[in-house]
């Protein structure tokens, strides 16, 4: 298992509870689970890296357990019960220094400290759709959901949010505009936060300014957005909706820069590579697709057999092999691995 997991550069969580690793360089995909003990309540709802070296993947399951998968050993090393299944599925998972942050649909944000049983609880309101961590200030998280506006929390001061968004003004009929935050992201090198909504809007909030309403609003398509991701180049955002339309929007004026083609079903997970102009998308059509953001062409397409919920990219070059530490081992393994291709039976396009 270890040699398989080391070459994987894309990790995908599926609805059937399987963690899948995909190696784009070798054009292979692997399942990391026991096929005998599969069940739907192990559905993978959230994925995140456990450490900065990206040697551990944290897998949030629907039944409330967070499993730790070691990419070096290729096995699940640890399992931890974080809340009960009845509070809803995980909507976000994050790691701060020596603590694990989880968020469930009911709006309960928990901070699980390493080694101690006491937890910090934050109630972020009902029906939370997503929780995201600020990658530069790791103790800050944002939450948002249906009829539950964007809130930014400081985990060190859990009593009240440091920023609460205000709903936009009433429309021309003087009716209240419904709120439904589906996903959000912190824009690096600024205080700004970009969100996408279930009413096909993209909004940018600026907590640094006194204005609590969005500073920019853009629309795309007519179906609810489900996922959002920020590419490495600043000034744009990639959003995906329930019909499999993925678009790159410009954050200066809110115009569409281009659409990514080839998706057949709803987008569930979207992530841009931290340094390369690549975006990985997965969803209900059971395919993992990797598009280039430069010419918007489809680079890779992998059929992964189950509906996919979330995707996680490693920060190294996706096409390259495993980390440079064990290159000579890899050369030996190459022939063996090529033999396996026919066994696995998954082809990349």
């Amino acid at each position: 298992m270890a040699d398989k997991s080391q070459i994987c550069s894309v990790w995908v969580g599926s609805e059937t509870g399987i963690l899948k690793g995909v190696s784009l360089a070798k054009k292979q995909a692997f399942n990391f689970c026991e096929m005998s003990s599969l069940s739907r309540d192990q559905e993978v709802c959230a994925l995140c890296w456990g450490d900065a070296q990206e040697s551990e993947v944290l897998v949030g399951c629907a039944n409330g357990t967070v499993k730790t998968f070691s990419t070096e050993k290729g096995i699940f090393t640890e399992s931890r019960q974080c809340g009960d299944g009845w509070q809803g599925k995980f909507t976000g998972l994050a790691v701060t220094d020596s603590a694990l942050v989880t968020c469930v649909e009911s709006g309960l944000v928990n901070v699980w400290k390493e080694g101690s049983t006491d937890t910090v609880e934050i109630n972020a309101g009902s029906s939370v759709c997503r929780m995201r961590q600020n990658p530069s200030q790791r103790h800050r998280v944002a939450t948002g959901g249906k009829e539950n506006g964007l809130k930014v929390w400081d985990l060190e001061r859990p009593d009240s949010p440091i920023f609460t968004a205000k709903n936009v003004r009433n429309d021309w009929l003087d009716l209240r505009v419904p709120e439904w935050v589906r996903d959000m992201a912190f824009i690096p090198d600024s205080e700004k936060i970009v969100t996408c909504t279930g009413h096909h809007q993209v909004r940018v909030y600026d907590p640094a300014s006194p204005q609590r309403r969005p500073v920019l609003e853009a629309e795309f398509g007519e179906y609810p957005f489900t996922a959002l991701s920020l590419p490495c180049s600043p000034g744009s955002v990639v959003v995906g909706n329930t019909q499999g339309q993925v678009a790159m929007l410009d954050l200066r004026k809110g115009l569409v820069r281009g659409c990514l083609k080839g998706l057949a079903g709803a987008v569930r997970g979207l992530q841009c590579h931290p340094s390369l102009p690549l975006v990985a998308s997965c969803g209900l059509d059971r395919f993992l697709r990797i598009h280039s953001l430069e010419d918007r062409s489809l680079q890779h397409k992998v059929y992964l057999k189950s509906r996919l919920n979330c995707v996680l990219l490693s920060s190294r070059d996706l096409e390259a092999g495993p980390p440079a530490a064990d290159t000579d081992v890899e050369v030996k393994e190459k022939d063996e691995v090529e033999d396996e291709i026919s066994e696995v039976g998954i082809t990349l396009l």
């Binding site: 279930g198 179906y223 609810p224 489900t226 329930t242 019909q243 499999g244 083609k261 080839g262 057949a264 079903g265 709803a266 209900l284 059509d285 509906r307």
Partner: peptide, 21 residues
């Protein structure tokens, strides 16, 4: 479409897109 009939907010498992497919 996944789930019962909801053409506005439902999640589609597969949509026939003529020009792409």
């Amino acid at each position: 479409q996944k789930g019962t009939f909801d053409s506005k907010f439902g999640e589609y498992e597969w949509v026939h897109k003529r020009h792409e497919m």
